[in-house]
Simulated assay, not measured.
Amino acid sequence: MKEKWIIVTGAGSGIGKEIVKECVSKCYSVIACDINDEALRQLAEDTKGHIETHVVDVKNGKDVKDLFYQIKDKNLYGLVNNAGVYLGKNLLDYEENEIDFVMDINIKGYVYFSKYFGELLMKKETEGAIINISSVSGMEGSSDAIYGMSKAAVLGLTKSCAMNFSPYMRVNAVAPTMVNTDMMKNIPEWRKNEYIAHQLIPSFVTPQDVADTVLFLLSPQAKHYTGATFDLNSGCYLR
């Protein structure tokens, strides 16, 4: 069977790194994208499998377009939009440049990758899957309003792309609660305690848990899911 390539953004650490490792373990080939060259080099050393690393600034449309020109002849199958930032600030404390920074990475980055990935697969009329990493904050709000807004936008993008890219691509979102990564250091203690108090399962979600969900959504077992959001939140938010 011809190898299938999965693109993962924010691949150098945390959730993205676990997704790359899990994809490789399931015999996918991976295009790992991150802005941190050193993190990508370490990832390549740690991962035993077919992996290419590309330094990409996801908020730069030209960077993303250039990447897809380089990989256009590969048998692309999956895209995992994962790159994101969380500043952990109250809206009143945000500077204008910080608002742009979060929106450019958390929203525009997803838009650029979805656009160029969608263009290639629609042109070839081949099947594929997009998985967008959102957050429970996109549904119930966040102490960081800009972050919450950006993750809510990802849910809207997921539904719209599911319609736009049908019938060739399935597009779904994963909305985790707090995940035990370095990003969690920016979450206020009162917010962490609030999340744990509301969880029906009193344990943190791990990057491996997110990766397991992503791999399911890439698999043939998820063939009837599109435009959906998968709540990975230990029951802290029920809908």
Rank of each mutant, 00 (worst) to 15 (best):
M1S: 13
W5Y: 12
I7Q: 03
T9R: 01
A11C: 06
S13K: 12
G14S: 10
I15K: 13
G16L: 13
K17S: 00
E18K: 13
K21P: 02
C23M: 03
V24A: 04
S25I: 00
Y28L: 10
A32N: 05
A32Q: 05
D34K: 11
N36Y: 07
A44T: 02
A44S: 09
T47P: 00
T47I: 12
H50I: 13
H50L: 14
H50G: 01
V56M: 10
V56D: 03
N60K: 04
K62Y: 11
V64E: 05
K65G: 00
D66E: 13
L67P: 02
K72G: 03
L76K: 15
L76T: 02
L76Q: 15
Y77W: 14
N82K: 06
Y86V: 04
E95I: 02
D100C: 02
I105A: 03
I105T: 12
I107W: 08
Y110D: 09
K115M: 02
K115D: 01
K115S: 01
Y116K: 10
F117Q: 07
L120Y: 08
L121F: 13
T126L: 14
G128N: 13
I133D: 11
S134P: 01
S135G: 05
G138I: 00
M139C: 04
G141R: 03
A145F: 01
G148L: 05
M149D: 01
M149K: 01
A152C: 10
A152R: 08
A153G: 02
V154I: 14
T158A: 00
A162P: 06
M163N: 12
N164Y: 12
P167V: 09
A173M: 12
A173P: 11
V179H: 03
N180Y: 14
I187V: 13
I187D: 05
K192V: 05
A197C: 07
A197F: 12
A197K: 15
Q199G: 01
V205D: 00
P207G: 07
P207F: 06
T213C: 14
V214P: 09
Q221Y: 13
Y225M: 15
A228Y: 07
A228M: 08
L232K: 07
L232C: 10
S234R: 11
Y237P: 00
Y237Q: 03
R239I: 11
